[in-house]
Design a protein around this nucleic acid. Structure first.
Lengths: 350, 350
DNA sequence: CTGAAAGCGCTTACAG
DNA sequence: CTGAAAGCGCTTACAG
């Protein structure tokens, strides 16, 4: 590996001059610049980021704003672990990472946490965006301050985000439908259950549902698709009644699709006879959902590599800050199909 | 953040002495050591890894010995890319990686390539082991020289390897059987085709077959399992005849399982009528195999994260050398279930 | 057992 | 417009 010193010797200039050319810092004559550039190109030289980091001394800090996890929805624990791991890895570049979580039910917690992070003057933001109105305000501030930001997990359009890291939700839903049909041969009815008012994840959940129904349309499968909405504030007893009554009234339902990470809550509510006969498909390898795979109540989970989402987002942003690597505008991670047998190799992220 | 210099001043010793204490390098009087340790603890000091990496520059080199890929079996291309990517990432630690490939059909190429790598006095080896006799000899040399080594992709027992990075092949085969049955309802016959004499991968292939057949035993499914061996030297015409004749003679066969990465060769040989009616399940997301998913001739591919196998192996070894992190003895990567719809998010590794 | 000094490769303030 | 030199924090011969 060449060094700046060697490049400088080769070009008969000082190291400082090479550095000026490398970082377009100006104050170099055209002739010298060309000479240096030629040699840089000849050796395909690039700076040693470790030395650079040391000389620059702790220049960057990345702020991360994501939802908190709780007992009934552990989903965000895993991206958070990925973020922590990445933070560890990029210490060697002198980059600091600060993560704060907000309450997914409370817009003001989202805003307040954002401002809390802003206090330390971050070089960049990683945001799992909730609440469209509030996101618009947040992003306006970042655009104004020229702080780069990328969106994690929840894909929204129309912003100047550097990138998006997450899943292709439409295709994920489409795959769920295909898997559903692989287990239920005749034409039948299917039920989509939304377990809460989707003020937050709505875009991902919406796209999953779209993909799910599209499978039937595209393949001209004459199935009826029903939808049931459950309020997350509903007591468990109330939820039980709602769900089982609904299933009782629709005996042709062969499978249930839950386009969120909360299929375990549904399993908790469903009468045993339904658990045994219906195909259930849900999202995300949270511990409770994995338990449902293991006890055979759920056939498939679609998983979205939550750990990697966090890890990749942080690494990507660091590469952007440190090496000025521009990432793709969308980074879609694999859509994992989990069954009882392969899930054990996918649970270490929690 | 405190520096070694500050710790040294505080303790009235030199920076070198602090360094000796920090890394237990000995040659420090008990009294001095205690004084220094107390101050390190007081300030909760830890070394700046950036500076450390820079100063340690170019200490380690890792030798990698893996099979070459060829037109009909691209499998090893992907681990190789993972290795290259990891090599890039750990440049910042000053670790060099040298990869050489051997011919999977020729034991002497395996041995010769190993000795070629040995010439540069590697700090560690990563080996995809073939040929048991030869592997025993190689490993004896490494044990003797106290060079640490880990096995990649092919799991063999009874050696002092630091770790194994690859797939749980038994479970992968077990899953293949489960998926096979999800598409074929009645009890029927299934055919296992081995596309070559397995002198190399035999352990992985053997375990996959074991897992596959175990599924039927464990779940008491009364299916007949047949086996057909094809020589890789056979001409395409001969292979065609063998396969189609066999299928013709066994009309109850409902599905074919190929426990190697060569299912595309089978597809190439099979008559159209079989391609349309039989369930085919194979391994690995090579470009040719992916093509078979896309044109619907293959229902499922089991994939083993080949890119990550290479990437993780190198990173693991570097962490061991640089930070003295001892890895788990076995690192099983996820067993991916690939279908037409999710394969596009898994092909970037080739 | 201990210290002084050079060096890892890059960046920057200063002098000209 | 350009170069010489100090410095980022740690590691490692070398000398004593």
């Amino acid at each position: 590996m060449k060094t700046i010193k060697e490049i400088a010797q080769e070009a008969n200039v000082s190291e400082g001059t090479v550095d000026r050319v490398l970082h377009n810092r100006g104050g170099v004559s055209k002739k010298t610049e060309e000479k240096v550039r030629a040699i840089i190109k000849e050796y395909n030289f690039s700076v040693n980021p470790v030395a650079s980091a040391l000389a620059l001394k702790n220049k960057f800090n990345i702020a991360v704003l994501i939802p908190a996890h709780n007992k009934s929805d552990l989903f965000w624990k895993s991206p958070n672990l990925g973020i922590t791991k990445a933070a560890e890895d990029i210490k060697t570049f002198g980059t600091q990472v600060q993560t704060l979580t907000y309450n997914q039910q409370k817009p003001e917690s989202y805003i307040n946490t954002f401002h809390e992070l802003l206090k330390s003057n971050p070089s960049a933001f990683i945001i799992a965006p909730s609440f469209s109105e509030e996101t618009r305000n947040i992003v306006a501030i970042l655009d104004d301050k020229k702080i780069p930001y990328l969106f994690l997990n929840i894909e929204i359009e129309g912003f100047n985000n550097l990138s998006f890291v997450g899943q292709d939700s439409f295709t994920a839903g489409y795959i769920a439908a295909k898997l559903m049909l692989s287990k239920t041969t005749e034409s039948s009815e299917f039920l989509i259950i939304q377990s809460r008012k989707n003020i937050t994840n709505n875009n991902a959940v919406f796209k999953r549902i779209e993909g799910f129904t599209n499978y039937f349309v595209k393949n001209e499968i004459p199935c009826k698709i029903l939808t049931l909405e459950i309020e997350s504030q509903d007591s468990k007893t109330l939820r039980k009644t709602k769900i089982n009554t609904y299933l009782n009234n629709h005996p042709d339902i062969k499978g249930v699709f839950v386009p969120s990470s909360r299929i375990h809550m549904l399993v908790d509510c469903m009468a045993d006879t339904y658990l045994k006969t219906l195909e259930l498909i849900g999202f995300d390898n949270t511990p409770q959902n994995i338990e449902c795979l293991k006890n055979n109540s759920v056939s498939f989970l679609i998983s979205q590599k939550p750990f990697n989402q966090g890890y990749n987002a942080v690494k990507l942003m660091n590469d952007y800050l440190v090496k000025n690597n521009i990432p793709s505008h969308k980074i879609y991670l694999p859509i994992d199909i989990l069954i009882k047998e392969n899930v054990i190799y996918n649970e270490n992220s929690y």
